[in-house]
Design a protein around this nucleic acid. Structure first.
Lengths: 138, 138
DNA sequence: CTGCATCCGATCGGATACTG
DNA sequence: CAGTATCCGATCGGATGCAG
């Protein structure tokens, strides 16, 4: 993936990413609610449609359905169970591999208290909470 | 930040993030080109307007200016030098703290070859390359 | 060289209502 | 319960031109 070539007597290393992975990631996960949906599927036992809807205040049914489709099409999640009355979603391997990104992002976000800065105004996600009450142990 | 309360005889831990950090981060960095601009400032010696423009094929002047403003207003970057003929941008501490996120994101993106999947179609960033030829050592 | 102003088509996502 | 269909205002970002 790297190539060397002389450049004014110096070593030049040129990396060329055919499809730049960062923006490509953000293209899917950067959409509104997407990361949140992924997290909630990852962490909750409530991987069913209305449950996900409940733990994500402010997100509409339509957006949830869209995000589930996006995430499924891109291989982040899959249907673990599908009866005639409900569907249960779960992470794929790829989806699981995103979690480290998520954690560093949370770490960063927490450190800098994103969302409470003066210039932030009204972030589009204001009021969205992350409810992990489902994490109760038996 | 956490609260315990009884719930059907089990322990319930409820975390409530007043402003959810993930989406808040993405609100700034998730916009098109934003992450890329931040990276190029971080890694290149070419922190000047047209230089950034050159190493980011496909991005328009207007968008670069917008992203620079966004990133500056949110404290990711600042002007290191401003003469009447040019400006040099550099990362702030906050901007530097984003790099770990970036690295995990690159790691993930590389593993899954984002952008080259069948269902990806035409990612919005197609053709954007990450040129680090400026990393030549003296 | 480093931006800002304007225009404009494309896309996004919220509200609401409907369906198997 | 788990979505789909339709509408619509808001926003985004690309193109182009102008300015300090």
């Amino acid at each position: 993936m790297g190539a060397k070539s002389p450049h004014r007597g110096r070593i030049v290393i040129k990396l060329n990413f055919p499809a730049y992975p960062v923006q490509a990631s953000l293209g899917v996960l950067g959409r509104k609610w997407a990361f949140l949906v992924l997290m909630n599927i990852a962490l909750s036992r409530a991987q069913r449609f209305n449950a996900l809807l409940r733990v994500t205040p402010g997100m509409s049914k339509r957006i949830l359905a869209m995000r589930l489709n996006d995430l499924e099409r891109h291989g982040f999640i899959c249907r673990a169970e599908r009866t005639r009355s409900f569907t249960r979603w779960q992470l794929t391997q790829k989806g699981t591999d995103v979690l480290p990104v998520l954690l560093t992002l949370i770490h960063f976000g927490s450190k800098w208290r994103l969302g409470s800065e003066p210039s932030e105004g009204q972030p589009s996600n204001i009021g969205s909470t992350f409810d992990v009450s489902f994490l109760r142990r038996p």
